[in-house]
Design a binder for these strands. Structure first.
Length: 376
RNA sequence: GUGGGUAUAGUUCAGUGGCAGAACGCCAGACUGUGGCUCUGGAUGUCGUGGGUUCGACCCCCACUACCCACC
């Protein structure tokens, strides 16, 4: 079997690579837009393709609750259901449990939680999470973990980390015995299961978590539990500590980050994959990322501004519409505002990654990777 | 013309003889493995005009003006 992840060029710790999935390849470092409920909010799949997205993240928690994973399996899997032929990754539901903490109860077995939709009680276990993720059929699926809250005492961080390690083993075991049940299964193709590094903000726990996760031999490794309120320097250190241990021939994924300059920086540090709700959520809230920094399009100062949103941007929104019009759409509550803003922000993120990949390919002669990206 | 009603923030309206209020709108900020076009904060007043009563009036009294309703 040919390797699922290949590295084509390196520049310092940064890698230019390619993940081969049953639904096309993903060039790395990659940014993955969030399509929580089987949709990147506000834009249709053909636009997502035009933007150059090669992989989208969807969510086990949401799709399980509605419309239900068995329904999606019955309709041929998530790719077919949402008419997305490129790669998909599903999150395990671990983070939703964390972010909806007042509704949860964590035990060794798993997590009891109440649906935010109708209040009904549900139990997620590692086995259940993987079962659902197999039914959905994403190309890359995630082990069921516990996202350690921040701040967390060392003892609490260790306890949480140990739980995640036990759950990782159970996720792996269940996956190995059921992976043939994926909707599009064939002899040569299965899903890739990623393990997740935790350990709170403790460098040695991060290292230990990474080492013991690697021993279980996953197809790729994620670094979770970051961007939960800690200072940026700490995020960076935890990533570095984890990357030191993670195998260089497997994809490494930092979950849930970040700002444009963050994703460029982490890619330069050797991270291959990232996802974040920021570009899409911010877009729906009127916050746009540009080459000149962040821009709140609802500000009065744009009311009569005929300039393109970002004159240096190559997206279709910047090519066609003025700031004045975009402000008008947003202020008026027009649905088109969310669509256009999302197109721009995702283009900006995806284009940032294209620049980073190009810089790695050229051996970073442009300096892009050495911190000269001045994005906020 | 007669009778009745109303007049308070940009708008729609609460309000009490003793610091001028809400909602929406407006202005600004936030957003990091997405429940939520969401959350947080801020500014804005000749309380229609002119008199009177009162220690004190947005509030009570009188007149005027504008608008609304009914009747003629």
């Amino acid at each position: 079997m040919s390797p699922l992840f290949t590295i084509q060029a390196q520049s310092g710790p940064a890698r230019l690579g390619r993940i081969a999935t049953p639904h096309g390849s993903v060039e790395t470092p990659a940014f993955m837009p969030c399509g929580t409920a089987g949709s990147v909010k506000a834009i249709p799949q053909d636009v997502l393709e035009e933007l150059g997205a090669q992989i989208v993240l969807a969510n086990t928690y949401h799709l399980y609750l509605r419309p239900g994973h068995e329904l999606i399996r019955g309709l041929g899997g998530l790719h077919k259901f949402m008419s997305w032929e490129r790669a998909l990754l599903t999150d395990s539901g671990g983070f939703q449990v964390f972010s909806l903490s007042e509704l949860r109860k964590v035990t060794e077995e798993g997590v009891n939680f109440r649906s935010h939709l109708d209040g009904t009680s549900h139990l997620f276990t590692p086995e259940r999470s993987i079962e659902i993720q197999i039914a959905l059929g994403a190309d890359i699926i995630m082990a069921f973990d516990e996202c350690t809250e921040h701040p967390a005492e060392r003892s609490r961080a260790r306890e949480s980390m140990e739980m995640t390690l036990r759950w990782a083993k159970r996720s792996q075991d269940y996956f190995q015995s059921h992976k043939h049940e994926v909707p599009w299964a064939s002899e040569s193709q299965t899903q890739m299961l990623f393990g997740i590094v935790q350990g709170g903000m403790y460098a040695d726990l991060r290292r230990e978590s990474a080492e013991r996760t690697v021993e279980m031999d996953f197809a790729g490794y994620a670094i979770g539990g970051l961007s939960v309120g800690e200072p940026r320097a700490q995020t960076e250190e935890m990533i570095v500590r984890s990357l030191e241990v993670l195998p260089k021939d497997k994809p490494r994924y930092v979950m849930g980050v970040g700002y444009p300059d963050e994703i460029a920086q982490y890619a330069a540090m050797g991270v291959d994959m990232m996802d974040c709700v920021l570009p899409t959520r911010a877009a729906r809230h009127g916050l746009l990322f540009t080459s000149q920094g962040r821009m709140n399009i609802k500000n009065l100062r744009f009311a009569q501004d005929q300039n393109a949103l970002d004159p240096k941007c190559g997206c279709k929104v910047c090519a066609r519409y003025s700031r004045a019009y975009l402000r008008h759409l947003f202020v008026s509550g027009e649905p088109l505002a969310a669509a256009l803003n999302t197109v721009h922000n995702l283009w900006f993120y995806l284009d940032t990654m294209r620049s980073v990949r190009h810089a790695i390919e050229l051996g970073d002669h442009t300096g892009t990777l050495s911190g000269k990206l001045s994005l906020t």
